[in-house]
């Protein structure tokens, strides 16, 4: 299983570490289109979505990543990565990858002084302990399309969701030692590989 982490800016090393800890055999940073070859899954990390989006366009990563999403390659976007994945962004008439059928509101919990930690119930994770979630100038999901399953909420706001092979979270699973969400993503990658063999 080979997983890529988009490595243009942001919390890249943290995702690499978490993915390895969760059992991924090979994890590679993605900076150029050629780095996408042979990936079984792609993680879009936290960072600044405007910066990462601009660099994806400039270095011709946007189209190939859109194609991969259409082909059914599993993707996991956290915080900025969620904004990159969404097909609608509040107050913006353009989107980045535009694959996840969801309307996302940027910086929706406020400025940095409003950034917070919270223990969440997340659907589908192993064990019964709550999941420690770190929200940093985080977005939230205002609306989801018909094929999207809501996995977690904070004060009635959707902060994690899945649509088939696409997974998005408002928070930063890469900033804690709890790798259950990364394991969940790797199980999505396994499923997609099995489906492809059939």
């Amino acid at each position: 299983m080979k997983i890529g982490v988009l490595a243009l800016q942001g919390a890249v090393i943290e995702h690499v570490k978490s993915l390895k800890q969760a059992g991924a055999e090979e994890v590679v940073p993605v900076k150029w289109p050629k780095d996408l070859d042979g990936l079984d899954g792609l993680v879009l990390p936290g960072g600044e979505s405007t910066t990462i989006g601009k660099l994806m366009n400039k270095y011709e990563l946007m189209e190939p990543v859109r194609e991969m999403a259409k082909r059914g390659v599993p993707m996991f976007g956290t915080c900025a990565g969620l904004i990159l994945l969404a097909n609608r962004v509040q107050g913006q008439d353009w989107v980045h990858i535009g694959a996840l059928d969801a309307l996302v509101d940027r910086n929706s919990f406020g400025r940095q002084v409003d950034s917070f930690e919270a223990d969440l119930d997340v659907v589908g994770l192993e064990g019964s302990e709550k999941y420690p979630a770190v929200f940093i100038r985080a977005p939230h999901i205002m609306e989801v399309g018909a094929g999207v399953e809501v996995l977690s909420t904070v004060n009635d706001r959707v902060v994690a969701a899945r649509q088939g092979h696409l997974l998005g979270a408002s928070f930063h699973p890469e900033l804690t030692d709890d790798v259950r969400l990364h394991k969940y993503f790797l199980s999505m990658v396994e499923e997609a590989k099995k489906a492809a063999v059939k």
């Binding site: 800016q9 942001g10 600044e48 409003d114 917070f116 930690e117 940093i136 100038r137 930063h172 900033l175």
Partner: peptide, 21 residues
């Protein structure tokens, strides 16, 4: 419980700036 201003939230904000200008 929701907690603001924790060490993780403050240091994490800087982690998100990495590789940037």
């Amino acid at each position: 419980m929701v907690q603001t201003g924790t060490e993780r939230v403050k240091r994490g904000m800087a982690e998100m700036q990495k590789g940037g200008v």
